[in-house]
Design a protein around this nucleic acid. Structure first.
Lengths: 147, 147
DNA sequence: CTTCAATTCTTGAATATTCAATATTTTCAA
DNA sequence: TTGAAAATATTGAATATTCAAGAATTGAAG
């Protein structure tokens, strides 16, 4: 039952490749939707994570939104300029910076979520709800098994 | 049965996010393996695709290896310097450039494949052969349904 | 306590990617 | 057959990402 690809089998049989391809495609579609608000996918992730209203440290946030620390720092700089988020020094550990979403950021986040949800609805339509749920379940457990 | 995320559900319930997360994780693992040969994942893809021995145009290749044209051009420049691949102008359509893999490139490709296969074997061990195959099948059909 | 190592975030330089424009060749309609 | 439009690949400038180093704070061992 276990069938890793053979040495000479096409690249399209590698899990790593299929994941990259699927991710690229879905990400591109999402990008198109979000471009209505002129915002990259990463900013949607950031706003979504911060929208729980709690402060999140840069380290936490970087993990959650799948960005390296320096990349996140620079993206947050831009978002601060756009008044979408703001920094507060963590009073209990002054090495840390806690990020919060502004009202403006919350409003944008809401609009972005609508767009993201509508994308997923579109996927569910063409791909099927059952497949979508199975795929999600399998991805979650792959991620779990990789830690 | 169809359950797209609600507006306020966590980002971890979005297919787009799960794909990005899984891809990031698996890609990172592969990167570690391939670093033994000092080669980025994209070069593995390129060498693998070219290893069928046929000439592939830059356009074809860019699609196959999931890179934009200019990015591919520059990566190929490096690989030409490293004598892994070479360019030939397509005699039947001189707008096109056909890429071929050199002997040195073939040898490297073989070693890279061993590493990539061993990664997938490792995934199969911890994640299970059944899950791996199901996941691959679902990813393939997601990709199909997105065209 | 004090000092040294670890943690957290940011910065700057090096590197890579992307966007828009260019050059070349082919296609095809008039 | 000619000339305009489309297709293909590359280039250069603008942008973004990454790597390595730095600054500030905390933790913890002696």
């Amino acid at each position: 039952m276990a069938k890793p690809p053979k040495e000479n089998s096409p690249i399209t049989e590698h899990l790593a490749y299929l994941l990259a391809q699927a991710n690229r495609e879905i990400n591109r579609q999402l990008e198109v939707r979000l471009s209505k608000e002129g915002v990259p996918v990463e900013q949607w992730r950031i706003l979504k994570v911060l929208s729980d209203g709690n402060g999140h440290s840069m380290g936490e946030l970087a993990d959650a939104v799948l960005l390296n620390h320096p990349t996140l720092t620079k993206m947050i700089d831009r978002m601060v300029s756009d008044a979408l988020v703001y920094r507060v020094q963590d009073p209990t550990d002054r090495r840390k910076v806690l990020m919060f979403v502004s009202d403006r950021g919350k409003a944008l986040s809401k609009r972005l979520n609508t767009l993201a949800v509508s994308q997923e609805e579109h996927i569910v339509e063409s791909y099927g709800g059952k497949s979508t749920n199975e795929l999600k379940r399998l991805l979650e457990s792959l991620i779990d098994s990789s830690n």
